[in-house]
Write a protein that binds this DNA or RNA. Structure first.
Lengths: 232, 232
DNA sequence: ACAAAAGTGTTGGTCGTACACCCATGC
DNA sequence: GCATGGGTGTACGACCAACACTTTTGT
């Protein structure tokens, strides 16, 4: 029918560690690009969809069993992106909550997104695209639920969001925005700090743990009048 | 290395015709899905990238030579998405300005996006995704440049945007938003209507014909203070 | 003069940031 | 009581939709 090509899936697994956004990479032992860092991933079996292959490779190679969020980002097809043979690659964005700490194999490690070494193949492009996607969605969806712990204080959430965006966000306004959009709600519990004083923080959780668009129309909103009989 | 699969590219070519958003489809003559409408596209040669294959298929099969905009939307991989054999498919969104009218082959036609017949394969999923992508980007980018004629009156632009979004947008506010965001500018010329009176409309054009994000942060914007030394 | 179409002024409301202030706890 | 971290109130500005009103043309 059509010419056939090997196809691989690649995972850009992001998380917040030590107050910074990090990506999971493994170091290649063999040529090509021996010694360089690369994204985890691999081939797709005949009976697998892309996302199934992705889950399998993550579980097997880097011991990441459950992503809190996963979405497809792009498929790259440059003819010589792999010097050995033509391979198409589909990249996914995956998110791991900041309080989950998978045990990693020896050749695998978290790397600061803002200070990456040169990556193997075109993997750097996938990372950039995934990070951009995440940062954009933080502003108009509730995707932060996949980056924060299940229950958290505002200070914790602020740390996560600040790290992911790469710039400062104030706790005050973060609370207001998230609350007004009904993204987070108090659990009823509070948390005290171990040392030194301070008022105990109220504990929050995300209302909904599925991706929800909270700010669909920045402009050009549908007219509010009428009886909802829009044609779309 | 990895198992190999045939790979096809599919084009969701959208345009505004007769005040409605339409998609380009061709009618299959042979099984499977004989008689059903499908997206244009086809295989990828060994020396081609996906976007090159896309351009070639569009030019050859449906005589569409130049898209004003093209972007990748998704890659689908369901094992039985083609009953004959396993084929991965990457779908693209393509936009044709409303004043361009490519000559179409006999088996090819524009279809109303809001009233599609059942499509072949999983092509309906590609269309939905592409339409959603377009509608979202109309609100925070200048992507309308690829849908409108090069020079246009506000009334024309309003028609295009209204058709694409599927709900009414007033000329007044459209002008204000587009102008404030420096998306459009007057050409200096005006346009009169043929019949019946009316004040001549000023002619506009898009300032920039490359995709520009005009509303990057709905919320959680970077703090404005400081000396731009954000770490991102 | 009148109708028709285009464009401007104004208003009311929502939203988001900044900043000052108040609250609860440990020492 | 005082430092420390948490939370609330208020103010200001930006932005957007709605609608009334003015401008410019053709007949």
């Amino acid at each position: 029918m059509f010419p056939a090509y090997p196809h691989e899936v690649l995972a850009v697994v992001l998380t917040v560690r030590e107050g910074r956004l990090q990506v999971l990479l493994w170091q290649r032992a063999q040529a090509p690009y021996a010694g360089r860092w690369a994204l985890p991933g691999g081939g797709v079996r005949e009976d697998q969809r892309l996302k199934e292959a992705l889950a399998e490779h993550l579980a097997a190679k880097v011991h990441v069993d459950d992503l809190a969020w996963r979405e497809q980002v792009a498929t790259h097809s440059k003819v010589d992106r792999d010097p050995r043979a033509r391979v198409l690659a589909t990249g996914y964005l995956g998110l791991v909550p900041s309080d989950v700490d998978p045990t990693l194999p020896d050749d695998t490690a978290w790397h600061l997104v803002d200070a990456l070494p040169p990556l193997a193949f075109d993997h750097g492009d996938f990372v950039s695209a995934a990070v951009d996607r995440l940062r954009a969605k933080l502003s108009y969806t509730n995707i932060a639920f996949a980056l924060a712990p299940h229950d958290f204080t505002i200070a914790t959430l602020r740390g996560v969001v600040t790290a992911a965006l790469g710039y400062d966000v104030t706790a005050t306004n973060l609370t207001r925005v998230m609350t007004r959009r009904q993204m987070i709600e108090p659990t009823g519990r509070t948390r005290s700090h171990s040392s030194a004083g301070g008022r105990p923080a109220t504990e929050y959780r995300f209302c909904d743990r599925t991706l929800t668009v909270t700010d669909p129309f920045a402009v050009l909103r549908p007219p509010r009048g009428g009886h909802d009989e829009q044609q779309r």
